[in-house]
Design a protein around this nucleic acid. Structure first.
Lengths: 135, 135
DNA sequence: ACTAATCCTATCGGAATAGTAGATTATTGT
DNA sequence: ACAATAATCTACTATTCCGATAGGATTAGT
């Protein structure tokens, strides 16, 4: 299941991206329009900023703005930051690989191949979708 | 992330399916061979039985056995029982639909379409894979 | 009777989620 | 200078879920 963190994060990003003028968008505005708890959204936008997707400006007229063109913000990178690994098991994860402790041999594991297939198909979608596609 | 419940469940099912003789397989045997906590596995096999995938026999010489041909056990149905909805958000789930409380209009939701696409691609895989493919 | 096995109910610690509170810092307009 | 605005930071809380465990009850074979 997609965490609310990710869901809200994606919604916030598209909200910002929709604004054609490149003026900073305050948290409160996003929270109100998208029905998100403002305080919760704060922390999400913070991680989004720290990961290089967003810039911020304090004070009056401040807020968050995109650092890149929506076309250049791939879903795969956003998902990895907000949701974590795209793979469903860490032993098939490209960016977060970790060996399963119950599995002596990955190639003999029946779940392994299935999960590889799932990962590949999801990755294909996330890699070919950018923020501009969500607008 | 795939829960251990699902992972263990799938491993157990394939373990049972691999045995060509149709004799009941005791929990302890599966647990030992697949490095799974026996008590935990107990509860998993129980739900698998209650969902109609497995039959059981008590007492000496007892254990679990498949009720259907591995070819007829679709991954989608197993996943739904063990892991829950295949969709990543309930508002795009076919079998577990639930409206999002923050979303006034699904068709206007930017996340919605993306998640539909993910669901479809995963569903396609799970529907076309059966237990026999895991062996 | 004894043993091997499933079945059932209850519980538990830890981690993760989702959200809250309050104080602080930086910027802008007046 | 000052007040308003808005991000930032730290800390805390409530709830839920996960993985696992405990102990007994039940059933079946020898």
């Amino acid at each position: 299941m997609l965490s609310k963190k990710t869901k809200y994060g994606l919604k916030a990003l598209t909200f910002i991206a929709r604004k054609t003028d490149n003026k900073p968008v305050p948290i409160a505005m996003i929270a109100k329009n998208e029905n998100i708890s403002q305080k919760f959204l704060e922390s999400i936008l913070l991680t989004l900023r720290k990961s290089g997707f967003l810039g911020s400006k304090k004070g009056k007229g401040g807020g968050y703005y995109l650092l890149k063109d929506p076309k250049d913000i791939k879903m795969s990178s956003v998902m990895r930051i907000l949701e974590g690994p795209i793979a469903m098991v860490s032993c098939v994860s490209l960016n977060f690989y970790e060996k399963c402790d119950d599995c002596p041999d990955e190639n003999a594991c029946s779940v392994y191949k299935l999960m590889i297939e799932i990962r590949d198909s999801n990755l294909k979608i996330y890699n070919n979708k950018s923020l501009s596609d969500l607008i």
